[in-house]
Design a protein around this nucleic acid. Sequence first.
DNA 1: CATGAATGAGTATTCATTCAT
DNA 2: TATGAATGAATACTCATTCAT
Lengths: 196, 196, 196, 196
Amino acid sequence: MPKVGMQPVRRQQLIDATIESVAELGLRATTINSISKKAGLSSGIISHYFGGKQGLIEATVRYLLSNLKQVLLGGLKADTTPEQRLMLIVEANFSRLQQQSNATKTWLSFWAQSMHDIELHRLQNVNSKRLSSNLACSYKQLMNIEDARNAAQLSAAMIDGLWLRAVLSKSDEDEFEHCEQLAKGYVRSLIKQYGS
Amino acid sequence: MPKVGMQPVRRQQLIDATIESVAELGLRATTINSISKKAGLSSGIISHYFGGKQGLIEATVRYLLSNLKQVLLGGLKADTTPEQRLMLIVEANFSRLQQQSNATKTWLSFWAQSMHDIELHRLQNVNSKRLSSNLACSYKQLMNIEDARNAAQLSAAMIDGLWLRAVLSKSDEDEFEHCEQLAKGYVRSLIKQYGS
Amino acid sequence: MPKVGMQPVRRQQLIDATIESVAELGLRATTINSISKKAGLSSGIISHYFGGKQGLIEATVRYLLSNLKQVLLGGLKADTTPEQRLMLIVEANFSRLQQQSNATKTWLSFWAQSMHDIELHRLQNVNSKRLSSNLACSYKQLMNIEDARNAAQLSAAMIDGLWLRAVLSKSDEDEFEHCEQLAKGYVRSLIKQYGS
Amino acid sequence: MPKVGMQPVRRQQLIDATIESVAELGLRATTINSISKKAGLSSGIISHYFGGKQGLIEATVRYLLSNLKQVLLGGLKADTTPEQRLMLIVEANFSRLQQQSNATKTWLSFWAQSMHDIELHRLQNVNSKRLSSNLACSYKQLMNIEDARNAAQLSAAMIDGLWLRAVLSKSDEDEFEHCEQLAKGYVRSLIKQYGS
DNA sequence: CATGAATGAGTATTCATTCAT
DNA sequence: TATGAATGAATACTCATTCAT
């Protein structure tokens, strides 16, 4: 039943299946078969739409990153205060777990792989830099540039650190929620500490 | 060239080669051949000494963890103040990069794999718990239990977060050094904030 | 050259190649490569169609057994006398050598392996029981039940014994023919001895 | 603890371990390690005494065959009648199961392998011929040569057939005993039938 | 558009053999 | 005389890719 205009549908089907498979089996055990089976499609379709497994992996990472960006932009309105913006950034980063039931493991797999994959590393760096610069941008409205940059780096580390430890200890949603609160508390303490 | 008493020598040779190979190629691309070639030994020897690839991987993780523990214990003397102890813990955790030229990437690979490997997860959890409890133990001498526990969780997250971001951005030694200072500064600020 | 509807063709190709390889090299020296080479196919195809070497081995045994059954059923017509039926059973069992140029050696290999392989043992038992019960069924029409059972056991042993010794001494077709006549003669002598 | 004159002791230890291992695991799964472990010796000793695995296998077959021969000769006394001799031959052949707790499976493995191993085939043929000629020799004293040869061939087939079916159906000792009685009964019926 | 049959290089593992001690 | 460390060829199996339909 070949149809026209299936391209975006098929692509998304395959990306969703990839996230599921990596979360469930790990990047290592994820095969073109495990993905296509989850998508309910044939294995050949992957080469057809993504040129190969590697292409699908990269498209999946790009999708996860752009999703994170959308969540962030979606929450920003014209009249948000700098502090509200900072809270939104924290929330967006912890929401990485909600997009798919368990896409958290997927993030971690891609991080590790990015150490040995140039394209993945580039994508991951763009994202990392964006977190820092988003944070710094808001902090700058509350303190001097030097302190803002420091606060941004520390907050970014705290967010990733809390998130990572939560993922690695296979925490449930409540514990993630608790970590999100800790991160917000830390951001507030930085504002109080350096804020003018 | 069979000799007697080679067991510990060969085991260490293979563990070192594994760390090198995982750092260079990633856990995924590390094969029994890449390891044995680096060790200058035959592939069969891995089964002989570790029962298989999985056994060698686990032995390598155990080695890295025990090394971290040794670094920590090695720095502790009788007359260290709680604050000195906390600084030592931070240093030990950042020293993960120095034990082997580039064992940092290796740690990250093992973390990711631990999400899909029960034994690795168990080992990683022991280590994670030890960091928290070591920190909490020292904090308890400086503040009340509730605050100490919180401080320990936050410091652990900050240490791992700073370390992770440094690894992921392929930082050089100076940047690691800077991160270590940031971590220490954060620990000091927690002491000042909650300390009685 | 992927085509549709090749499944049964490929399966039979591989089963034939297995019989050939086991006959020529023995079960022990038969590898996935020796089979796929004989079949003119790649080694991967075996996993594709049979899940692995073991699956192909079992399918091959099943094929040989079902073939034996077919030869037997094929010879039976409505108006055969019990004695004619008994002769047909003997013939069918000796025909094991004709189905494939030299499938006899293959049978022997599978028998030996059945001592250490549950599934093969099950299959081999079904076959062995069928020979006994087919013989007993015909004998019962010629003598009392007790004698029929005895005659069946003795005839089955005589058939297998003559066949085995012919195989082990690498007999030619004439000698097989002679053994078949001996077996038939023995069956007739049992009928004369016990027959009412 | 190197000692002199250990050669025959070690050889027998290894042959016994081979019989055990082949019976338990099958010829296919029997390795130099499974044998040397059962013998409580090192793996290297096998090359030392038998030149390799193949040499040990052949020595083991030779041992089983010579044992069968000994059992037969041992039972023969000066004043045995031809019929007694025939019964002894049957008994000796069924005793193949008693030499080692379960050496029966071992025989079958070697038979199958003899189809693809010249030396094994030679040994097995000598044994097979001896059975026939021993039987024929005794029969000749009771009937004319033609009938004796026929009777020998049929008896040999009956003995092997009954024994084979008993082994393949994993019969217990009682069932083996029953088969031995059936074989003896058959020999007696042949004597009655052709005997002058 | 989409399938899935077919390939074959690559992987971990096994194991008979060798040989320094 | 005896060991067992070390080897590396061989084996079964996996899986990304290709391509005829």
